[in-house]
Design a protein around this nucleic acid. Structure first.
Length: 269
DNA sequence: AGCGGATGTACAG
DNA sequence: TGTACCTCCGCTT
């Protein structure tokens, strides 16, 4: 379930479980065998996320750069690690703890310099304290592209995916097809602030929950959402269903090879 | 049992 | 713009 919040949460979990410890690294599947061999027996010094990219640092300054792509995932376990089932790209173990990485689109060993270069290509990440929203606004406020496309562009904003895009535009009442350069400064400030709040909540809970208290199933009596991303949302994957706020029909359309969801009645600004 | 879609990205043309 | 990547899960049969 990888949007930016997932990677920040993973960085924290890797830090908690393996930070400062000597780890055993292996690639049961074999596709990261060379990298795992170089890391095996080293001390894992820390893990950081920048947008959807994860960097795990070791005592020789080498970094593992991981991008989960659409279906990559880490799974953590305690106790003795069981024999790997299926395709495990990277397994990290330390006494009493293990972590399995499956299905990433990238898992590679980088130098500190190369890792910095990867991060430098990304826009500001609402989850990072060092993020500078002015960098994103400078691009957005000059662009003729739709705000929906701009929010997903990792060189403009890092960490926002299809769920946060749909949900933040709904919460701010912004029509996804509006051009970036037609947004007001006030609208941008509200988008940035809301993304930060939503994504921090996502890190805390481990799921994407965007529905305000007054619109929750408990408050309105409607049936709670049950699906594989787990959270309560306004519009994401709710095409043709009634809007939680106005009761109108949620719409969907393709936009840059992704499915966009929005409520035309609530999002007219 | 098998199909298709998914919270993402990169590359071909 | 389309397709490949290569994993999981829900849905259909």
């Amino acid at each position: 379930m990888p949007e930016g919040h997932t990677l920040h949460r993973l960085a924290g979990q890797l830090d908690d479980r393996f930070g400062g410890r000597v780890v055993h690294a292996a690639s049961p599947q074999g596709r990261f065998a060379d990298g795992a061999a170089l890391l095996d027996g080293r001390t894992l010094t820390g893990a950081q996320a920048h947008g959807k990219h994860l960097f795990v640092t070791f005592d020789d300054e080498a970094r593992v750069h991981v991008h989960l792509g659409l279906y990559g995932a880490f799974r953590f376990g305690t106790g003795e690690a069981p024999a790997p089932v299926g395709q495990v790209r990277l397994r990290l173990t330390a006494p009493g703890d293990y972590a399995d990485l499956r299905g990433p689109t990238r898992c590679e060993l980088l130098t500190a310099y190369e890792a910095h270069a990867v991060a430098a290509r990304l826009g500001p990440d609402p989850l990072r304290p060092d993020a500078d929203p002015e960098r994103a606004w400078a691009r957005i406020s000059r662009s003729r592209s739709s705000v929906a496309a701009l929010l997903m562009d990792q060189q403009i904003l890092a960490g926002v995916g299809n769920v946060y895009r749909a949900e933040v535009l709904f919460r701010q009442g912004i029509d996804p097809y509006r051009a970036g350069r037609d947004l007001t400064r006030g609208e941008w400030d509200a988008l940035w602030a809301d993304l930060g709040a939503l994504m921090r909540e996502g890190v805390r809970l481990g799921r994407i929950d965007t529905v305000r208290p007054e619109h929750t199933p408990e408050a309105t009596g409607r049936a709670p959402r049950v699906d594989d991303h787990g959270g309560e949302v306004y519009v994401y994957r709710r095409a043709a269903r009634p809007c939680h706020v106005c009761g109108g029909e949620v719409r969907t359309a393709g936009l840059a090879a992704r499915n966009l969801f929005w409520c035309p009645r609530c999002q007219q600004r």
